[in-house]
Computed example of a mutant assay.
Amino acid sequence: MATVKAHLYLNGRQHAVSKLPAVFPVPGGTVEVKMSGFGLKRCHYVTTEGHESQLIPDPASAEGRRARLDRTHPTLSRTIGLVSLGVLVTALAVLVPQLAEQLTKPDAIAQHTGTFTAPIDVPTWANITIGLATLAASRERALRLRHTLLDGAAG
Rank of each mutant, 00 (worst) to 15 (best):
A2R: 13
T3G: 05
T3Y: 14
T3D: 13
V4Q: 12
V4A: 15
L10T: 12
N11M: 14
G12K: 05
G12C: 07
R13Y: 11
R13T: 11
K19L: 10
A22K: 03
V23C: 15
F24K: 03
P25Y: 14
V26Q: 06
P27Q: 15
P27D: 08
G28K: 01
V31I: 08
V31W: 03
V31R: 02
V33F: 05
M35D: 06
S36K: 04
S36E: 10
S36Y: 05
S36I: 07
L40F: 07
K41Q: 09
R42K: 04
C43G: 01
Y45R: 10
G50V: 10
E52D: 14
Q54D: 09
L55T: 08
L55N: 05
D58H: 13
A60K: 12
A62E: 05
G64S: 04
G64F: 11
R65E: 00
A67P: 05
R68K: 13
R68F: 00
L69T: 09
D70P: 03
D70Q: 11
P74E: 01
T75L: 14
R78N: 03
G81N: 07
L82M: 01
S84N: 09
L85W: 07
G86Q: 01
V87P: 00
V87M: 01
T90R: 07
A93E: 11
A93T: 12
V94T: 06
V94N: 00
L95I: 12
Q98A: 10
L99A: 08
E101N: 05
E101V: 11
T104F: 07
K105M: 05
P106K: 12
P106E: 13
D107N: 13
D107F: 15
A110G: 13
H112C: 06
H112P: 15
H112D: 08
T113S: 12
T115M: 07
F116V: 14
T117P: 00
A118V: 15
P119N: 09
D121E: 11
V122I: 14
P123T: 08
W125V: 01
A126Y: 05
A126W: 04
G131V: 09
T134V: 03
A136G: 03
S138W: 13
R139I: 08
R141P: 10
R141E: 08
A142G: 03
A142N: 01
R144H: 08
R144V: 09
R144K: 10
L145W: 14
R146P: 15
H147A: 10
H147F: 14
L149E: 13
D151N: 14
